[in-house]
Design a protein around this nucleic acid. Structure first.
Length: 425
RNA sequence: GUGGGCGUAGCUCAGCUGGUAGAGCACCGGGUUGUGGUCCCGGGGGCCGCGGGUUCAAGUCCCGUCGCUCACCCCA
């Protein structure tokens, strides 16, 4: 078989194509993450992949890496400045505000979504320029049970996929009352350290994120750093304690991580991250938290909210690392092998009939010979082959062959679909 | 943005200190004029990423370039 090279194009840097059979796994993972959300009253929301660039710079935070260097931005012919969405929360909240869901429906407004996100970064294992996540947001209510609910739903999603070796890191970042005080204390501490210029600048703009630095030289100096944990106001302390109790009651194990900050500015109080060690250096498979101030930041009313996003690509990598095979829906169950043109027409009809009866059926196309068609039947994964030539059809039968045993018996054409339904039930 | 590793058949890779390009798997055909998977026999496939240099001679050495990849950074 000689094939000319048809294309010199390849997927853009940091992107990849989802093709069979792996693409089935991705679909299954998306569905598995969404299932618990649907059962918990979350409604599906879909927003544009691009938005006004200011939605993100104001929402996600001017100082974040996402906004300062990772956004794909463009100016339209009409002069609008847009950006491909680097995350989901800001868009979903914007959509909820625009549709007045918080007024017309019950609060919390519970929404889930699934889609692709874009960040201009150097690709590496588990980090892509287009990546896929499933997310959930509960908008307009301040209730520790809501934080706990979302975390439990994420854990249930992972478990339903068979993922085992993930850990849940939990922290509270305080609120507008206690965070500024802590921030000042931390800034004070960081001022006394020996830090490089970049880090020094970060300490000015968003000192909490310095805690997240994974470099040893930095971490060593952070040993005695003040922690948010010790600066929480009474309200935040009580709130966080309730979240923890609810998680424990639901049988969800977590690790307190007072250094967990996350890279988006809008988080308040509860923050969490699901980490997995099988992905290389990108350990987060999912994460989220509460964002009580975000609505106001983008021009809405006060709407305390909480949400998360789980990375589909990374979840797939984590599953692979654990050697978990995700159950994918049944492939072809029956494969039809025609001998000659007349049989091809007849089997085309029978395959159509079988499909309409709910059977996953396929047919050899392209005038393959019997041998080639049987090969296709084998590769299709079908349990049954339906073989028919003029001899059979003259007798009003087709040959039904069990591909696992090789046994073959004639079945009347009229009875084929009902026979198959019985065999497959 | 900064570093490291790697680009040889559709895929995974071998090719030692330069001497006319290989394996396994996959694919196609035959053994079986109407039967796949196993087995046996046969076959097609390669600008050795690209450009330049050294040399009688470069997949192999040198330089450049592009691509992939991993890591820093950051995060899903």
């Amino acid at each position: 078989m000689t094939e000319a090279k048809l294309s010199t194009f390849s997927a853009p840097k940091g992107t990849y194509d989802l093709i069979p059979p792996d693409s089935e796994t991705f679909l299954a993972v998306r569905e598995a993450i969404a299932a618990p959300l649907r059962r918990a009253g979350y409604g599906y929301v879909e927003t544009p992949v691009f938005e006004d660039v200011n939605l993100f710079s104001r929402g996600v935070g001017e100082s974040t890496d996402i906004v300062t260097k990772e956004m794909y931005t463009l100016t339209t012919k009409g002069g609008d400045d847009l950006a491909l969405r680097p995350e989901g929360t800001a868009s979903v909240l914007r959509a909820a505000l625009q549709a007045n869901l918080h007024r017309t429906g019950n609060v919390p407004v519970k929404l889930w979504y699934s889609g692709s996100y874009y960040r201009y970064e150097r690709p590496q294992a588990g980090r892509y320029r287009q990546f896929s996540q499933v997310g959930a947001e509960a908008i307009g209510a301040e209730d520790p049970a809501l934080d706990a609910e979302l975390i439990v739903l994420a854990v249930d999603a992972y478990r339903s996929l068979g993922l085992r070796d993930f850990r849940l890191l939990l922290n509270s970042l305080g609120d507008r009352e206690c965070r500024p005080l802590y921030r000042a204390a931390l800034q004070d501490f960081l001022g006394g350290l020996d830090l490089d210029e970049d880090t020094r600048r970060r300490a000015e703009i968003n000192p909490l994120r310095v805690l997240d630095d994974k470099r040893e030289a930095v971490q060593k100096q952070l040993a005695g750093a003040p922690l948010m944990r010790d600066h929480l106001c009474e309200g935040c302390k009580a709130y966080h304690e309730q979240v923890r109790e609810l998680l424990t009651a639901a049988g969800v194990a977590y690790t307190d991580d007072p250094r967990l900050v996350r890279g988006l500015d809008y988080y308040t109080r509860t923050t969490f991250e699901f980490v997995h060690d099988g992905l290389g250096s990108q350990s987060a498979v999912g994460g989220g938290g509460r964002y009580d101030g975000l609505s106001e930041m983008i021009g809405g009313p006060a709407l305390p909210s909480v949400g998360w996003a789980l990375g589909v690509d990374r979840t797939v990598l984590a599953l692979r690392a654990e050697g978990v095979d995700v159950a994918v829906p049944a492939r072809t169950q029956v494969f039809a092998v025609p001998l000659g043109e007349q049989a091809h027409r007849t089997l085309f009809g029978l395959v159509t009939e079988a499909r309409r009866a709910g059977i996953a059926a396929d047919l050899a196309f392209g005038g393959k010979g019997l041998k080639g068609a049987m090969k296709s039947a084998d590769r299709s994964g079908a349990r049954w082959a339906v073989v028919a030539g003029e001899r059979d059809l003259a007798d009003g039968v087709v040959q039904l062959k069990d591909l696992t045993t090789g046994d073959q018996t004639p079945v009347a054409v009229d009875a084929l679909v009902t026979t198959l339904k019985e065999k497959l039930s």
